[in-house]
């Protein structure tokens, strides 16, 4: 082994002797940069990785919010099998666990959503884009009547109301205020927002109590319109409920602790 090594060494020395003297290295010539591509390949590769990450974060939240919202919850049962209690009654998603049935999450999308969660939150790209989907739905209005300590009405109005709220964007904000506290996706503390909105109206008008009435404004079929019925006909408004809020009667925000959604649920505080 040592002999072989010695032979190889002497052979290399001989080859080195036979080689012409090494020319000094000329300074390394830089390849001229392509003017149509001013960024170098390493920078482009790095930014490409960032682009892919960002676009994943743009793509995943609306995908997740489309297939996995609360109202579309899928029980962990064979396809088509309904969740029923011992009496054979349908069990709503919020009570599935009480009969030993878990909720299914889409494995890939949930995993991806967990990964991009905070990044998407930071950039406010954690949204769905489900405008008027899955179907356009009825509108809601809230009539309010603010009273002083003697029970006399000092202010009344409607949310939203085009006559009071102008320009149109300001009206639309009031409309959204009413609509976003009526959807099934909204967790309970926000469903109680009528109390806090009532408190704000009392602060605004200096009242002691406020009566708020939620009305559903039903839509008309084409036939009803052809028959001459007006879309704001009084019969199209259905009273959904009415309650009186008194000054200082605000729900405890901490009471919502039980309503924390599971970790891989839709982004907290954001509905589609």
């Amino acid at each position: 082994m040592a002999k072989q090594s010695g032979n190889r060494q002497s052979g290399e020395e001989q080859a080195a002797r036979e080689k012409p003297a090494k020319q000094p290295k000329s300074p390394r010539e830089k390849r001229p940069r392509d003017p149509s591509m001013p960024w170098g390949p390493w920078l482009r590769a790095l930014v490409s990785a960032a682009i892919l990450w960002h676009l994943t974060a743009v793509f995943v939240p609306p995908w997740f919010l489309w297939i996995a919202p609360d109202h579309k919850a899928t029980p962990n049962t064979p396809p088509g099998e309904l969740v029923r209690d011992a009496q054979g009654n349908d069990v709503p998603p919020e009570r599935w666990e009480s009969v030993g049935v878990a909720r299914q999450w889409p494995p890939l999308v949930s995993w991806l959503n967990d990964i991009v969660f905070h990044y998407a939150n930071l950039l406010y790209i954690n949204n769905g884009y489900e405008f008027f989907s899955p179907n356009p739905s009825v509108a809601h209005v809230v009539d309010y009547e603010v009273m002083d300590d003697a029970g006399q009405t000092i202010a009344e109005g409607r949310l939203p109301d085009l006559r009071d709220q102008w320009p149109r964007l300001f009206y639309h904000r009031h409309m959204m205020l009413v609509e976003q506290t009526q959807t099934p996706d909204v967790p309970p503390p926000l469903r109680d927002v009528a109390d806090t909105a009532g408190e704000w109206l009392l602060t605004k008008y200096g009242g002691e109590s406020v009566r708020m009435t939620l009305r559903i404004h039903h839509l008309l079929t084409p036939k009803q319109v052809r028959d001459g019925m007006a879309t704001d006909d009084p019969s199209t408004y259905e009273e959904f409920g009415s309650f009186v809020h008194r000054k200082g009667d605000v729900p405890e925000p901490n009471a919502a602790a039980e309503t924390i959604p599971p970790p891989n649920t839709a982004i907290p505080g954001v509905s589609p």
């Binding site: 205020l177 503390p189 926000l190 927002v193 909105a197 605000v250 925000p253 924390i260 505080g269």
Partner: peptide
């Protein structure tokens, strides 16, 4: 209308 405390409670 929607106080910050109520808004952040679900988080």
């Amino acid at each position: 209308y929607v106080p910050v405390s109520v808004l952040r409670a679900p988080q």
